[in-house]
Amino acid sequence: MHVPDGFFDATTSIGTGVASAGAIAVGLRRSADELSDRLAPMAGLVAAFIFALQLLNFPVASGTSGHLLGGALAAVLVGPWVGLVCVSIVLLVQALVFADGGLTAYGLNVILVAIVPAFVGYGVYRLVRALLPANRRAVVAGSAVGAFVSVPVAAAVFAVLFAVGGSIDLEFSSVLTAMVGTHLLIGIGEAAITAAIVSAVVTTRPDLVHGARDLAVDLELRTGTGATVLEAS
């Protein structure tokens, strides 16, 4: 569920739209550097995965369920730039096809759901990784903390933008408290689900996790006379 039309005034809508377009343009260029001619199919399939993931219901408490926002997860799995581009495209399709999120609020939704989680989530992930020993457990812990922090930060960014260009004059501190308060709880769910998914992927295919590339082990050729390290792929 995303911000619809009418929440923010036209100036803020245009401003956030321009900012998001710039970020997506940089993201596309950085993604193209990384994936070269694989960009369209790879990013397209990752975007389709994120789209499907948001339809997947996770149990929360006593039979109620919720779904993942996925910004921080995408950043850890495929890197912040490709993740940003993929989540932005999912948002566009949701706005165009399901009218989920207004067209004038697209820029705002990109900032809150794609840009902030990609950079805050990934930044915190890197920080945690730097503090912990280099192993798979640190990858899982880092993505949990990154996902957790990214949700209330996005809520705080919403509160700030709402104070600047919201369509109603609510007291900034009360919006901030309410938004960050509820999103701390949502962040716990986001952290648990993100960690569980990253843990599942890193166990089966650690080489696919962008944020765990430094853990990749070189292939070894083992023969009767000893082991030779093959050239890293």
Binding site: M42, L45, V46, A48, F49, A52, L53, L56, F58, P59, L68, L77, I193, A196, I197, V198, S199, A200, V201, T204, R205, L208
Partner: peptide, 13 residues
């Protein structure tokens, strides 16, 4: 469910 999602990512990739 997390394993489902993880597998789904690997298969999509």
């Amino acid at each position: 469910i997390a394993h489902t999602a993880g597998t789904l990512f690997v298969r999509s990739y």
